[in-house]
Structures are given as structure tokens and as C-alpha cells.
Design a protein around this nucleic acid. Structure first.
Length: 704
RNA sequence: GGACGAGUAGCUCAAUGGUCAGAGCACUGCAUUCACAUUGCAGGGGUUACAGGUUCGAAUCCUGUCCCGUCCACCA
């Protein structure tokens, strides 16, 4: 067969993916392993649950990395004879998706608040349905060998059923409660957020020193101060030893005379400012805690849209910033402003999506009691039942679990799983459902998968969601199934641009992985993503690097072309006759080639050396050192096989059989990394004599 | 403030206490009908951040210092 002198990924990839899909071998039930392994040999299972991609956009570089690493693991284990399942899925991604959709609405001049909830839900549902199709195609472009017959979506009816069962169980065990507690409120998105969904932003504001009776208090937020009727100081502060806890004082405040109560509490920092502050329990987490401790009144000053309530009297209905200036004017006219510090730098909480200032509010919400849920997780991790790769993530996870606080799981958006039996418009935090993903998926495939594959083998995901997702999966799984959800956690770093900068739309340095795959081939992109990428560290993605692996693909192509031309009639143990035919039908080798059934010392040395390399690489694969395995096989193939062995074969020093054997084995090792090109070449290899070729390289046996 | 990580060739990274610290990219010189120019051959490039210590032996272990990064918690 004539092969072109350049490898053209575009002509090959879709065709090969179709071949795999039609073979049915993505589905573990169809793997020949089930027929070969009889009762004497235990069937070994291997399972990865794909982190469900958010159904609200396209595949980005981070996804491409996930697909690459997980596909490498999956293909490797499949070739090692494991009954291998990689279960794909998509996430409705509650708040994230709603934010994306709201931006779309904004562009169309519409607003979520003008649309009936049912209609909005329907629209977002259609939006995600479209995205799901796109993402699925993108995942296929990357070569992912996942079992599409088991694909899941977080809003599938059976998944929701599992989520509800867990919620009911939590309720029964009194681990979930409704509480009027202080929560993070985003005034733009009109929902509460968990503590993980806020960011810290440094802000420069004016800092006001106000006279509060005999005290001076300092604040950056005078607009919250209307209801302040408690003045707090440290019990050990000698400056205020003459004041006693509970003592009442009369004083002139923003809108006239008020009665204030002295509170002594250790939360006060003696050295900060004057050591005295007034509290606003409705709009500040620390103040809320002080109020809880002393059973103090709490009053709402600002509404959920960021406007002052009637308690502010003449300022009622004003927006925060407008009110702030006017209040200070009034206080100044009353002589209650001692001084104003101009450039006061402080950290404020913002919504991690829109950067709006978070307004803490007291609101009735659903909370999960986390301490009892965290305890078994801490125990399991301590006992190393779950292995972290890289290992230092163990410490990070433990630190968080040991300092865990209750989790607000209710959101006031339409896009999500409704919280049952609650008021309208309340849905679960999306992580409450994805936190159950490993068992929710395996329990709902309609097969015996939970029994077969749970706990799963590897959870591979980004290190940045170790708290959001990984830790919560461990806790919820131990709670619901009494089992850990996975034995290993492999955490990759972030994909950065070529200069090592974080990709962002505003910087305009976002790399689209599909464009790179289109230009250089998915195999080249995969190599570019995996070589030099140690777990846990971020990876700068350089187009030149991918170009280099495109060249490598071409090298593989041409080396294979050469070997196939040389050995057209030779099989691995084809006998001397076949070799002679090969010699006559080709220009090379010039001198008498060694008979391939009688290997020379050089052949043996080459084969032994290869075996050594293969062993090293296998060890790397078993220890999740894919960066190292990929580099080794790259180096071996190019600089040993091509530059030395093939060159020596031209001089007649290496037999054709050896060439073919090493080529075949190299293709096997390369397959998990570069599945398309290796499969394409495998399809054209002659079958080994006395043996049969498999339908695809994908299910060939690993070299050892 | 706390936690975690990193500092090795121009760049990105390996090196599991044990040869002369290695790869890829980049760079320099040479080669060109040869499977492949998306190529081949040859080459330059290192005080492993710094200072001590442990050891027969340290990039690796310990202590300290200096930078860099990430995360968490925060002062009204």
C-alpha cells in the first residue's frame, strides 16, 4: 500500500474515532477480556469518572488536559487487560451556567428578572442541550475513549433521585438544617453564595472616625450604622475599665437620640483603631457572631438590592454609595465626624463571578453540618485510604477539612435541582449534586456498575477544585455509601499561555485547544499537554512545543512507512523465505540481511535494550509519571529507533523482523499518548505469524 | 497573620541520597536525490538562589536567610 510521505492528522482522526466507536470497545462489557479471563483469573476492573464538564461553553485548554491525562490512564489500563470504564458526563453547573446565560440575556437587552422562572429554566435547558452536543464533539476530537453508552448529566431524572435520597437521609440524621444565619449575598445575581464562591479584593476607601457618645468608632461603611445600638470593647482593655458589660448610655446619633448598650467581647482587637466598635449584626459576619454570643437584637438596614430600608428615615431608598456621602454630610453638620482618613486600604469580599461587593445578609437558608461529615473523611485520608498525587495535596485537604464550617447549600436561582419541600425558587448548590457524582453515576447506569467499579480507581481533576469538589465527594460518599469514592486523586495544575500567564478573555491570551488540534493534530496537542507536565504544577502551553510533536507524528509516520516498505512480506516470525521476498522486492538492504528467525547478537542486544526501556516506561505509567513516560518513548523512538536502529538496518546489520517487532511495540507504548496515528498505522501492519491481529491497537496487549 | 509549594542551561521542566546533574524547545556550525527538511550529523551552554550543617557521598536530608507563586483567614 502506498503511504503518503506526510502524515495528515485531519484525514485520519475522525475516521479512526469512528472505528473505535463502532468497535464497541469503549464499553467495558465488550472488551475481549471478559471472554479470555475465566474463573481462574480474577477480572481486574479499572474506573475513572470523568469530571463533568460545565454545559455552558466550549472545551477549553483545561478540559483538553483532563481528556488527555484521563485518556492516557484509560487506554493504558485497557491495554493492561483491565475491564476499563471511563464514564463521561456533563454538569448543569447551576450558578456558573446561570451567570453565562444572564450575560447572554444582557446582550439581548433582556433580564432574568423579567422572565417567568419556568420560561427561564426552559431557555437555559435548551442552551445547555446545545452546548452538550458541542462539548461531546470536542471531547471526541481529543480522542477520549470514554463509554458514551453510560453518559450522564447532573439533571438526569435518576441522578436527581439519588441527590434527593441523600438530602432526605441528611435531614433524617439532622445533618441538614434551615437556619437564619449570615450569608454571602450577591446583589447583582440575587442569590446567596457559599464561602468558596467569594473572592477577596483590595479596595481603597475613606475611613471615617465618628463620635459615638463618649467613644470614637471607626468605619468604612457609615451607611450600615443606623441601627447600631451596641458598642463593643475588649474586656481587658484598661482604657474602658470604667464601663461595664450591659451598661446603658444615652447618645446623639445620625437620626437623633438613642440608647446604646456596652458589650464586652474578646473578638475586639485592642490595638486596632480606638479599640471600640459598634456592631451591625445583619451585615457583618463578625458582628453577627458577637450578637449571637450575647443574644443581641439584629436589624436589617440594607435590602437585598443594596438600598437603605425605612430605618434610615430620610435616606431610605437610597443606594449605598449615594447614602454614604449624604450621611457623612449630616454627621459633619452635627459635629459627629472626628476625622476622615482618605486612602484606607482594606479587603472586601466580592462575588467570584461578577466582582460585585458581597452584602452580608441574614437569610433563612439550608445548611449542611460539616464537622460530622468531615470526621470520617479525615480518618480515611489519615489512613492513606485515599492517595493524593502529588502528595502535598493531602496536607491541603486535611487543613481545610479540619477547619471546616457549615455549608450553605441553597441558591436563589432557577437553574438547578429544586430543594424539595421548601419555598419556591430555592435550588441546591451545584456542588451538592456533583459532590455525589461518582456513586450517583455508577448507581444509575442500569447495570451492576456500582458493585463492579466502586470505589473508583482515580479521580483526576484540577487542583483548584480540591475544596469545592474533591473534598465534598469524599465526605458525601463516605456518608452515603460508607465507602471512599476513589482510591487515588490525581490533581493537575492550570494550563497557562506560552509566557506562563493565566489565560483570560480580558488579556486576550486564551488558547483554543481545538484550533491547535485542527492545525497540528490531536495527538500533537496531547503530547504538548502531557510532556513536562508534572502533577500539581501549572503548564505553559506553547504552540512551538505542539509543532514539535506534530513533527514527531510525522517522524512516526515515515519510520513506519519505511519499515512497512522493507518488510512488506515479513511477519514477526515469518521465516527466511518471507525475508528473501522482502529483500528482493526492495532496494535495501544491500548486503545479505540476517535471517529473521536467527537473530544476530546485535538484534538481541537491540531487543534487550528495548525491553529495558519498556520496563522503565511501564514503571512510569504505573506511578502516574506520564510526563516521563511520554518523553522516554519520544526519545527512544526518534533517537534510538530511527536514528540508530533503522540506519543500521540499512547497512544490513539489523533484521527486518527486529524492525517490525520494535515498531509494533513502540506503537503500543505510544498509543495511550498518541492514539490516532498509532491506530492508523496499526491498521496497516501485517499480522504476526501464528497470531492474530486485534481489531484495534486500542485493545492490544501492552508490551510486558 | 497562617498553610502549601517552588527556586536546576536562554525558556519549560526531569533527576526515587550513589557514574561526568539530564531532556525538549531555542541557539551555533555542517550536510542535501537516501522513510522523513515537519530531516540528519556535530556543538556551545550549569558555582543546582544564598549561608551553614548531617553523611564515605547532597540538587536531593536538616537549620537559617532571600526571592517567587498558590490557597486560606482576617481589623471594625
Amino acid at each position: 500500500m502506498e503511504l503518503p510521505s506526510q502524515y495528515n492528522a485531519k484525514d485520519v482522526e475522525d475516521k479512526i474515532y469512528k472505528l473505535w466507536e463502532e468497535s464497541g470497545f469503549f464499553n467495558p462489557d465488550n472488551l475481549p477480556i471478559n471472554k479470555i479471563r475465566n474463573s481462574k483469573l480474577k477480572i481486574r476492573n479499572f474506573c475513572i469518572i470523568m469530571p463533568p464538564a460545565n454545559a455552558n461553553g466550549n472545551l477549553h485548554a483545561g478540559h483538553a488536559l483532563v481528556m488527555t491525562i484521563e485518556d492516557i490512564m484509560t487506554r493504558y489500563k485497557r491495554m493492561r487487560g483491565f475491564k476499563t470504564l471511563w464514564l463521561p458526563g456533563l454538569d448543569h453547573a447551576g450558578f456558573e451556567t446561570q451567570v453565562v446565560y444572564e450575560k447572554k440575556l444582557e446582550k439581548e437587552g433582556r433580564s432574568r428578572f423579567q422572565i417567568e422562572p419556568e420560561q427561564l429554566y426552559k431557555e437555559i435547558f435548551e442552551f445547555t442541550e446545545n452546548n452538550k452536543k458541542n462539548i461531546k464533539n470536542h471531547v471526541k476530537k481529543m480522542g477520549a475513549s470514554c463509554d458514551w453508552s453510560r453518559e450522564k448529566f447532573t439533571l438526569d431524572k435518576d441522578i436527581i433521585k439519588v441527590v434527593y435520597e441523600t438530602f432526605e437521609k441528611l435531614k433524617k440524621d439532622k445533618l441538614v438544617y434551615r437556619g437564619k444565619k449570615i450569608i454571602n449575598w450577591c446583589p447583582k445575581h440575587q442569590t446567596s453564595l457559599s464561602d468558596l464562591e467569594t473572592s477577596d479584593t483590595e479596595k481603597t476607601d475613606k475611613f471615617y472616625y465618628l463620635k459615638y457618645g463618649p467613644f470614637t468608632i471607626a468605619t468604612a461603611r457609615p451607611e450600615t450604622k443606623f441601627g447600631d445600638k451596641y458598642v463593643v470593647m475588649h474586656p481587658k482593655d484598661k482604657r474602658y475599665k470604667d464601663y461595664t458589660h450591659g451598661q446603658k448610655i444615652e447618645l446623639e446619633w445620625i437620626n437623633g437620640k438613642i440608647t446604646a448598650t456596652i458589650i464586652k467581647d474578646e473578638a475586639i482587637d485592642i490595638d486596632f483603631g480606638t479599640g471600640v466598635m459598634t456592631i451591625t449584626p445583619w451585615h457583618d459576619a463578625t458582628d453577627f457572631e458577637i450578637a449571637e454570643r450575647h443574644n443581641l437584637d439584629k436589624e436589617q438596614i440594607i435590602d437585598f438590592y443594596g438600598k437603605l430600608l425605612p430605618i434610615a428615615e430620610e435616606f431610605s431608598g437610597m443606594k449605598i454609595l449615594e447614602a454614604r456621602a449624604k450621611i457623612i454630610e449630616k454627621l459633619q453638620s452635627k459635629g459627629l465626624v472626628e476625622k476622615i482618613e482618605e486612602n484606607y486600604k482594606h479587603i472586601v469580599k466580592t462575588c467570584y463571578k461578577c466582582n460585585s461587593l458581597i452584602e452580608p445578609q441574614i437569610k433563612e437558608q439550608w445548611f449542611l453540618k460539616m464537622k460530622p461529615l468531615a470526621a470520617p473523611a479525615i480518618k480515611a485520608i489519615e489512613k492513606n485510604q485515599i492517595k493524593f498525587i502529588p502528595s502535598h495535596y493531602k496536607k491541603i485537604a486535611m487543613h481545610w477539612l479540619k477547619n471546616i464550617i457549615d455549608w450553605n447549600i441553597s441558591r436563589q436561582i432557577v437553574w438547578g435541582i429544586p430543594i424539595p419541600g421548601d419555598e419556591e425558587g430555592q435550588v441546591f448548590d451545584t456542588w451538592f449534586s456533583s459532590g455525589q457524582w461518582p456513586y450517583a453515576t455508577l448507581k444509575t447506569t442500569g447495570k451492576n456498575d456500582f458493585k463492579t467499579f466502586f470505589p473508583t480507581d482515580v479521580m483526576e481533576t484540577g487542583g483548584d477544585i480540591i475544596f469545592f469538589w474533591v473534598s465534598r465527594m469524599i465526605m458525601l460518599s463516605l456518608y452515603t455509601t460508607k465507602k471512599i469514592p476513589f482510591k487515588n486523586v490525581y490533581l493537575h495544575g492550570m494550563v497557562l499561555d506560552a509566557k506562563g500567564q493565566k489565560m483570560s478573555k480580558s488579556k486576550g491570551n486564551v488558547i483554543n485547544p481545538l484550533e491547535l488540534a485542527e492545525k497540528y493534530g490531536a495527538d500533537a496537542l496531547r503530547m504538548g499537554l502531557v510532556v513536562g507536565n508534572t502533577p500539581g504544577t501549572s503548564l505553559p502551553l506553547d504552540e512551538n512545543k505542539i509543532k514539535g510533536y506534530r513533527n514527531f507524528a510525522n517522524k512516526i509516520w515515515n519510520a513506519s512507512r519505511f519499515v512497512l516498505q522493507q518488510t512488506a512480506e515479513v511477519s514477526l516470525r515469518g521465516g527466511s523465505e518471507a525475508t528473501d521476498v522482502a529483500i528482493q522486492s526492495n532496494r535495501l538492504p544491500r548486503r545479505s540481511a540476517p535471517r529473521n528467525d536467527r537473530l544476530t547478537k546485535k538484534d538481541k542486544r537491540i531487543l534487550n535494550d528495548f525491553k529495558k526501556q519498556a520496563k522503565e516506561i511501564t514503571k512510569d505509567m504505573d506511578n502516574y509519571r506520564f510526563y516521563s513516560a511520554a518523553e522516554k518513548i519520544y526519545h527512544y523512538f526518534w533517537h534510538t529507533f530511527c536514528d540508530k536502529i533503522i540506519e543500521d538496518s540499512k547497512k544490513g546489520e539489523v533484521s527486518q523482523a527486529t524492525l517490525l517487532e520494535i515498531l509494533t511495540d513502540c506503537l503500543k507504548i505510544l498509543h495511550p499518548f498518541m492514539p490516532f496515528i498509532t491506530e492508523e498505522i496499526y491498521q496497516q501492519l501485517p499480522p504476526p505469524a501464528g497470531g492474530k491481529k486485534q481489531k484495534c491497537l486500542m485493545i492490544e496487549k501492552w508490551i510486558l
